[in-house]
Computed example of a mutant assay.
Amino acid sequence: MNIGYARVSTQGQDLTQQRSALTEAACNRVFEEKVSGARKDRPELGRMLDHLRPGDVIVVTRLDRLARSTSDLLGITERIKDAGAGLRSLAEPWADTTSPAGKMILTVFAGIADFERSLILERTSSGRAAAKARGVRFGPPSSLTLEQIAHARELIEREGKPVAAIARLLGVHRATLYRALAA
């Protein structure tokens, strides 16, 4: 069964052209919505994906009506594939997972997206390492100052005060004080 998906970004836009193109493409059912593609929550898209059965083919007039980015397209395509269904774009004939060539193109896209994710992770990791080398501290600021830690150490070692009492005095949890003393 061919299932159409039509989307426009604003309430003022019209779905008529998409609707007629999907009807000409022999879509038995068309899911329509007027919502920005940038929104993750697109109710009709979710309903359509939940409605899929093996052998169904999602038909869109253009891929930008279905997905907001390459990674979004690949995620949606994966859900379609997991349901045993296919995807076909009327404007982009190469985007047809019902054909071997279309499957290959989307596989290449998936590889490129994976490569891009790896590059981003690598750049992020090297950036963090460089920042750490410059002395940048990550995470929340320390709950205790160096003076408070020194004072706590003195109270424990010289006066024999219990860690729990000192932690209460400093307004921190015992574990926080233990970590600070160990550092």
Rank of each mutant, 00 (worst) to 15 (best):
158 R>D: 02
176 T>L: 08
90 L>K: 08
9 S>D: 03
20 S>K: 13
85 A>D: 11
142 S>K: 14
70 T>R: 11
136 V>L: 04
143 S>Y: 11
174 R>T: 14
56 D>Y: 05
167 A>T: 01
79 R>P: 02
178 Y>S: 11
147 E>V: 13
98 T>C: 00
132 K>M: 14
42 R>E: 08
52 L>H: 10
140 P>K: 12
166 I>T: 07
85 A>T: 11
127 G>Y: 12
7 R>G: 08
9 S>M: 01
79 R>D: 09
58 I>R: 02
29 R>Y: 09
60 V>W: 05
79 R>G: 02
159 E>P: 00
55 G>H: 06
89 S>K: 04
115 F>N: 05
56 D>A: 03
181 L>N: 06
177 L>E: 12
46 G>M: 10
64 D>L: 05
29 R>T: 13
53 R>S: 13
166 I>M: 05
12 G>S: 12
167 A>Q: 02
102 G>A: 09
124 T>K: 09
151 H>C: 00
177 L>Y: 13
88 R>G: 05
112 I>A: 11
48 M>F: 09
115 F>S: 06
75 G>N: 15
151 H>V: 00
26 A>W: 07
26 A>R: 14
178 Y>T: 11
26 A>F: 09
136 V>H: 07
119 L>D: 01
15 L>A: 00
178 Y>L: 10
122 E>V: 06
79 R>M: 04
142 S>Q: 12
124 T>E: 03
147 E>N: 15
10 T>S: 07
139 G>V: 05
109 F>W: 13
88 R>T: 05
25 A>W: 11
69 S>V: 12
9 S>Y: 03
178 Y>A: 07
182 A>M: 09
164 A>V: 12
64 D>M: 06
56 D>S: 03
49 L>Q: 04
107 T>H: 07
9 S>L: 02
156 I>P: 08
97 T>P: 09
91 A>C: 04
113 A>K: 09
30 V>S: 00
170 L>P: 05
68 R>N: 04
130 A>K: 15
79 R>N: 04
89 S>H: 03
36 S>H: 00
43 P>A: 13
79 R>A: 11
14 D>C: 05
163 V>A: 12
1 M>F: 08
144 L>P: 13
69 S>I: 13
169 L>P: 00
94 W>G: 11
144 L>V: 15
59 V>R: 02
62 R>T: 14
66 L>V: 03
117 R>D: 10
81 K>G: 07
70 T>I: 11
2 N>L: 09
125 S>N: 14
143 S>M: 14
41 D>N: 15
61 T>W: 15
18 Q>A: 04
10 T>E: 07
3 I>F: 09
